[in-house]
């Protein structure tokens, strides 16, 4: 696939000040690109700094060295061009689903008519059409994440950043949400960067997997799941049955296990 990159991570390191003169090197000298309209998955064992990398992309953390470049200029703080979905529920409980989805557009001055139209479109896209007037507290965990996704997409970001978005969901819901994301990626051509520690999720969603090692987080391998033949397949069962799926999963397992041993 020949695509230009929208997001470049250039020699990025991150050191956290733990106080008392102690420092923690969380991320060390990571470089990779995220291609436009692609799904890039950051995978690795816990403590590999994958969330930190994502947060630096969002502008919620500042790199100690190196830079994150979006659309040609360096990231300096959060902005609407990089929408983020968190693992924890972030629905604004005092607003209905519709008003939640309109939130970003409202604060960015999108006229009311267009706002309503776009909100309705994205609410339908994530399958919440019947719940537009419900409050988030009336929804299940999976539905709340759908609200968060619709809210971010409706704000028209260049990149959708997701930090273990389905980590808090039960298995079957997670699986439905993964299929939904493929559907959304196909329909909206949104570039996505997804952090996960779930191998299946990574293989199913990724056009490219960035595997990070732990303590400190370094780029270990860039893996293209070539067995999918450059297509996205919105049916998880079919992906699992493809030749090469098991092989890739075993390879990632090996990588995970190696890193896990490192950590101990």
């Amino acid at each position: 696939m020949d695509r230009d990159s929208i997001l470049e991570i250039r020699n990025v390191s991150k050191t956290f000040d733990l106080g008392g003169g102690r420092e923690l090197l969380a991320v060390q000298d990571i470089t990779f690109n995220v291609e436009r309209n692609s799904i890039c998955v950051l995978l690795g064992p816990s403590g590999c700094g994958k969330s930190t990398v994502l947060r630096m992309m969002a502008g919620l953390e500042t790199p100690s060295a190196g830079e994150v470049v979006i659309g040609g200029h360096a990231v300096d703080g959060p902005g609407r061009d990089r929408g983020m979905v968190f693992q924890a529920y972030t629905s604004f409980d005092w607003l209905s689903v519709r008003r939640n989805v309109e939130f970003g557009m409202k604060i960015n001055g999108v006229p009311a008519g267009e706002r309503r139209e776009r909100a309705a479109h994205f609410i339908n896209l994530v399958g919440l059409g019947k719940f537009a007037d419900a409050y988030p507290s009336q929804l299940s965990g999976g539905m709340r994440q759908r609200v968060a996704i619709a809210r971010t997409l409706a704000n028209d970001p260049e990149v959708l950043l997701m930090d273990e978005p389905f980590g808090a969901l039960d298995a079957e819901t997670r699986w439905l949400m993964q299929e939904l994301m493929i559907d959304v990626a196909e329909k909206t051509s949104t570039t996505m960067v997804i952090v996960t520690h779930d191998l299946e999720e990574a293989i199913f969603l990724a056009d490219k997997i960035i595997f990070l090692s732990s303590h400190p987080g370094r780029l270990k391998e860039e893996i293209i799941p070539a067995f999918k033949g450059g297509r996205r397949i919105a049916d998880k069962e079919r992906v699992v049955k493809l030749d090469g799926y098991g092989e890739l999963e075993a390879r990632l397992m090996r990588l995970m296990r190696e890193e896990g041993r490192h950590a101990e």
Partner: peptide
């Protein structure tokens, strides 16, 4: 107030006063 709510608003393009008033 959970940090994620504030960060969500920031990544939706909200400024400081908008975050305080609207979130």
């Amino acid at each position: 107030v959970r940090e994620e709510l504030v960060e969500t608003a920031l990544t939706l393009g909200a400024g400081r006063s908008t975050v305080v008033m609207k979130v």
